[in-house]
Design a protein around this nucleic acid. Structure first.
Length: 425
DNA sequence: ACTATAATAT
DNA sequence: TATATTATAG
């Protein structure tokens, strides 16, 4: 036990009476490491090591980063923070780092097992939690760097968060890219007819349900996010090959010869409903799908459109993990529509710029609660560009029911471009 | 730097 | 139990 007292003179007395530690009140954050060390020592050795100002430094116990951080932070800057989950502790950037029972993956084969855990005072790393704040920094870094050049090291530098490691960033970046990929796929999928989707997804006969990838009960942040927004991006020169990041392979996503039997029917002139809450916009009407969205409540469908009349890209797309139910960063992102630029007849869907994010989570939230329907004009929806092997542009109509694929061609869709091109450029 | 996957969390 | 997230090995 520890004795806590405001009376500094009680130290000796307390210790001699069996207290393990004397910490004068008021307890400071800087005391945490002491307490931690004590507890750990006790647990490891089964006996107490009396802690005094004189001896504690000799006792080697690795104190989790977050606790050290806490005490370091105590001497300074940081204050505001969000609540992390119960087992978490808040650290500098609002990130949560969980104390974590030792876990160390071993390179396989010889597993000497716990030898180390007993003998060495294992330095265990805490698991980083990507909070909104970190996520925000992360996105800012990417935005700043440009996705192409956004590599872990640079991102790390730009983020400038002391306790972050390159590995943390790399891992996160990996997840981020996965997300982008999904978004891209979904975005594309949304352009295809149900039959086409089905054929792509299953390579087989149509299965029921057709729309399960779009169900609102999904709890996945990225999946959810995919279902609820319009994407915009300006089509342009084909950037073949640049979709690398979005594709598992190093090639652009390609659609090989979609079976003819799926190509020619399913004409729809009205909106097609995907799942129960999402309506695919076609041709001339983009707006309605988000009307529907709003009724579902902000937990699931954020007002996904933001009027942006400037013609500059303004899409904000965050991404994140848990925290706000469905409304984590990722899902709360919203898309925007940008009026057609004169001279440009192409209008396509895509995720527009994750990279313009400035503070997605919060901005988004405020948008969510701000006003009623954003009003905006929907420019005539036109076509998505496809590029064939030769770099020739084909157009994929938004309503693909009448689109004739040339089965002798391989179509590339420039996902990366869809995702990252800047409207204004 | 990147990716696959183990370890862990939920 | 399944899925999601993060750490780690290669």
């Amino acid at each position: 036990m520890e004795v806590m007292s405001s009376d500094t003179n009680k130290e000796h007395e307390s210790l001699t009476c069996g207290a393990m530690c004397f910490i004068p009140k008021p307890i400071k954050v800087t005391d945490l490491p002491k307490i931690y060390q004590l507890a750990l020592n006790y647990k490891r050795n089964g006996k107490s090591v009396v802690w005094t100002e004189n001896n504690h430094k000799d006792t080697y116990v690795s104190v989790p980063q977050q606790i050290q951080l806490l005490s370091e932070q105590a001497n300074g800057l940081n204050t505001k923070k969000k609540t992390c989950s119960s087992r978490s502790m808040t650290s500098t950037n609002g990130s949560c780092v969980r104390a974590d029972s030792s876990r160390k993956r071993k390179s396989n084969g010889s597993s000497g097992d716990d030898v180390e855990s007993v003998s060495q005072p294992t330095k265990k790393k805490s698991k980083l939690t990507w909070t909104d704040e970190l996520q925000d920094l992360f996105l800012q870094a990417i935005k700043h760097l440009t996705l192409e050049k956004a590599v872990p090291k640079k991102i790390l530098e730009h983020m400038n968060v002391p306790y972050l490691t390159r590995e943390n960033v790399a891992s996160h970046l990996q997840k981020y890219r996965q997300f982008l990929r999904k978004v891209a796929e979904q975005g594309l999928l949304s352009l295809l007819s149900i039959q086409e989707k089905d054929s792509i997804l299953s390579h087989g006969p149509i299965r029921e349900p057709h729309y399960n990838y779009c169900t609102p009960s999904s709890t996945s942040w990225y999946e959810t996010s995919l279902n609820n927004r319009l994407f915009y991006c300006k089509p342009g020169q084909g950037l073949l090959g640049q979709s690398r990041l979005l594709s598992n392979t190093r090639e652009p996503v390609r659609f090989n010869q979609i079976p003819h039997k799926y190509m020619n029917h399913s004409s729809t002139n009205g909106p097609r409903s995907i799942g129960s809450n999402f309506t695919l916009p076609i041709k001339t009407n983009l707006n309605f799908s988000y009307q529907a969205s709003q009724n579902v409540g902000s937990t699931f469908f954020e007002p996904s459109l933001m009027a942006n009349k400037t013609g500059q890209s303004s899409q904000v797309l965050g991404f994140g993990q848990h925290g706000n139910n469905f409304n984590n960063n990722m899902m709360s992102s919203y898309g925007s529509l940008t009026p057609n630029q004169p001279g440009h007849s192409h209008f396509s869907y895509g995720v527009q710029s994750f990279l313009n994010n400035e503070n997605s989570a919060y901005k988004t939230r405020s948008h969510a609660h701000a006003t009623s329907q954003p009003t905006f004009e929907v420019p005539p929806l036109e076509n998505l560009n496809l590029y064939d092997d030769l770099g020739n542009t084909n157009e994929l109509p938004c309503d693909t029911s009448n689109f004739q694929f040339d089965h002798n061609k391989v179509y590339y869709i420039t996902l990366h471009y869809l995702l990252f091109s800047n409207v204004s450029t």
